[in-house]
Design a protein around this nucleic acid. Structure first.
Lengths: 201, 201
DNA sequence: CGCGTAACATAACAACTGTTACGCAAAGTC
DNA sequence: GACTTTGCGTAACAGTTGTTATGTTACGCG
């Protein structure tokens, strides 16, 4: 056998190059040559490790989902209930460069899923899993009996995280990490401090 | 003078074709030929009314922003304070096909603005204006003195609307209009029914 | 009734795209 | 040391892209 290389490592490096290109140029700037340049290799190497562009994109998406899930898994198992909830929520915010990159790419993938039924299915599954996880964390963190509108509260929290993340990566100057944390703190307070909707419709 | 046409109307029709293409195919599917097909004309006609692709995109974006602003203007001036707030918020949610289209296109433009300083500036201005408008509406709707965390509450509301809209257009089946309205109701209740943050950090 | 110009359509152009084929180097086996 | 196979670079290919140039139509004025 000739020289051996770590194929898994190569594929990861190329997927990370995909992330960088998507984050900087968007989906319409995602060309094989741009990825090759970002990865410091040639298009021939890309086609050697991936059948076609679609396979490269699928791997890049899958790897990102896996990394995010792993990080959340760790955070969701340590600390008190309210601390676990908060730390997991912060993982969905672009508080540093790494998460900023992830969120931009994630948003692009999410929008791209709209025109690809296969991607949409994967996204829907991941989203449902995310909702379930946050529901459990919110339930554990509640200092009072489970309210009847828990379902809506969690969906509101998820939406707030996604929207805040999207706005923050679009205009980072207007959404410094402190502001993001304050908004999250306020929202968590409202959710966890109001026992039942004294609704004013 | 030869036959006269309403150039403004033509430009609007072409911009609306841009919206449809972006909503269905994304930014990387936005080609002049695709727009021409969607508009029922030829690429020659597109280049006759717009210098280049960038000008076409700029017009499409500008027209969309103007239409959204006009609709909000009307809603923000009729009814009681809480009703105005709610109706304006609902304009940011994909509750029907028209707004679904707008929100998808808006999201694509927002992400695209990340790699174009000029677009980013326009987006930032529009976003700041949106925040200001909602701040006023929330202030009017509050049944108690202005809380110290009003700024964070409004940003949380805006984020919640954006995130909810994004998730809803991505997977409409999982976010029927009723669910969107319930989430909005719950969130508005939390904001308007809790006088001060009895914060549980 | 010409006829000039606004309002288009058609087509050619170079640049760029994903994909495929081909070539070569090097590391291990015999 | 010949030989095979993995690992990769180079280049050619057909298709698509935005842009430009060149026709062609038809309306309204004189």
């Amino acid at each position: 056998m000739p020289r051996q290389v770590d194929q898994t490592e190569r594929r990861q490096a190329m997927s990370e190059a995909v992330w960088r290109v998507v984050a900087e140029q968007g989906m319409d700037g995602l060309t094989l040559r741009a990825v090759a340049t970002a990865a410091g290799c040639t298009t021939g190497m890309l086609t050697y490790y991936f059948r076609d562009k679609k396979a490269l994109l699928a791997h890049a998406r899958s790897l990102m989902h896996q990394r995010m899930a792993d990080r959340v898994d760790v955070l969701a198992s340590r600390g008190a209930a309210q601390e676990r909830l908060r730390s997991v929520c912060e993982q969905a915010l672009p508080l540093d460069d790494e998460r900023r990159l992830e969120i931009v790419v994630w948003a692009h993938f999410q929008l791209a899923a709209r025109s690809d039924p296969e991607l949409l299915e994967q996204h829907a599954a991941a989203h449902a899993s995310w909702i379930r996880r946050l529901t459990g964390l919110v339930r554990d963190a509640l200092p009072f009996p489970e309210p009847s509108d828990l379902y809506e509260r969690v969906h509101g929290l998820v939406a707030c995280l996604d929207g805040l993340a999207l706005n923050a990566v679009t205009d980072p100057g207007a959404y410094p990490p402190e502001l993001q944390r304050h908004v999250l703190t306020t929202h968590l307070s409202l959710i966890l401090a109001t026992p039942k909707g004294t609704t004013t419709p």
